[in-house]
Design a protein around this nucleic acid. Structure first.
Lengths: 219, 219
DNA sequence: TTTTATATTTAGGTTAGTCTAAATATTTTA
DNA sequence: TAAAATATTTAGACTAACCTAAATATAAAA
């Protein structure tokens, strides 16, 4: 199945939207994700449906077929492995790599990605803590524990970022919070759900906005 | 100047055709190089001319402007650095990397290629012996000495391949000839211009076809 | 449950890059 | 140098991916 970059981007968008939302994805959601118009999405969806990559009934939204999902996961795999390359080998910062990986993920080759994976020593997670699917499309599920759900007095390690947008990552840099950072919840403020947190470099106040976008593991 | 992949490919084609041929490149030559029709080339040339990337007068052929050549050289730089990455880091064979580099050379980034170059320890030549332009577009000129011009009894080292096509590279592999190989010309056959050559792994007969596609340095 | 608001699809148009076929230049050959 | 061959350009058409505006379907509110 030889797909255009655009087709691949649609599949990826439907895949990632399927996580946050139910299984049926609306035309408008996709158009928002891809910065296109709803009518363009309808066009493309018909095409993808003809190729049996999505299930589609007029006005009922879309979902990925098995083949469609396999392809989407492969693109995610490529994206995340390239991100590891850019950060670990070329020394980019974690907030600089997304756009570049969006380009690199579309490079077509039977062998490239497996060779890259070996070269990188089979990493399991990308620089934002997101799991990297293996070559068969198996992908670890994020345990859904956010910093916001940690109780007073408990400690945890940051293992992932939910919102990997540029400004959020830059903000975390400023707070000296990164993957692997140890955090101890000192107190929580019921009024605005903010929390006082002890980090390696001192105590800081963290808003609810932030705390519900950090994946953590209790220790 | 934000160019499409197609535009970049036209510039690259004109640049590399300009080497073998005179400075004015014909429509037909370009169409042969890019596997398109002459009429398509005319269309694109007008577009590139409007952008001041080529000099063009109807029926007179094209040549690159200074800007056009700068861009072409940058693409060549990207292509060759990616080839080094694929061979040195991902352990591809030298005959497997061209197509992949054709894709990778179009990745758009202000910083990527310089970081890649540093990561590769500033290589000066790609896996086929072609010189890598520096970031200012300076590129070493191949001294034009081919194996075919070496005299009886003289020795040389292979420093480059003129025709880097897949079958030719595979053939060299079979003869155990690679960059750095030492060759001694034992005798030349005036009839068909073939030559008897001593290599590290024995004596072989080399056709004129082959000998005029190998760049060498006398030792 | 009817009306209103919103979402989705259809119809028709645009641009980049390609094509074929026809028209026009240039070059070669006689 | 005139005729024939070849090269180049123009004209008109196609596809992918997008758009706007209008039409239709679904969902929400009165």
């Amino acid at each position: 199945m030889l797909l255009s970059q655009t087709e691949e981007n649609y599949l990826k968008a439907i895949y990632s939207l399927g996580y946050a939302n139910s299984n049926k994805i609306s035309t408008t959601l996709i158009s928002a994700e891809l910065n296109t118009k709803a009518s363009s999405v309808t066009d493309m969806i018909k095409k993808l449906s003809d190729k049996d990559l999505v299930h589609y009934k007029k006005y009922q939204g879309v979902s990925l077929t098995e083949i469609g999902r396999d392809i989407a996961i492969e693109i995610v795999r490529k994206h995340r492995l390239w991100e590891v390359f850019l950060v670990n080998k070329l020394h980019y910062n974690w907030d600089e790599v997304h756009e570049l990986a969006e380009q690199l993920e579309h490079i077509k080759s039977e062998t490239l990605i497996d060779k890259l994976e070996a070269f990188l020593d089979f990493p399991t997670h990308d620089p934002h803590g997101d799991p990297i699917p293996d070559r068969n499309g198996n992908i670890e599920h994020h345990k859904n524990m956010m910093l916001s759900s940690i109780e007073n007095g408990d400690s945890c390690v940051v293992i992932g970022i939910k919102d990997s947008s540029d400004p959020f990552l830059k903000f975390l840099d400023k707070l000296h919070i990164k993957l692997g950072s140890h955090l101890k919840v000192v107190s929580k403020e019921p009024f605005d759900n903010s929390m006082l947190v002890e980090t390696e470099s001192g105590s800081i106040s963290i808003s609810y906005q932030i705390s519900k976008n950090l994946f953590v593991k209790k220790i």
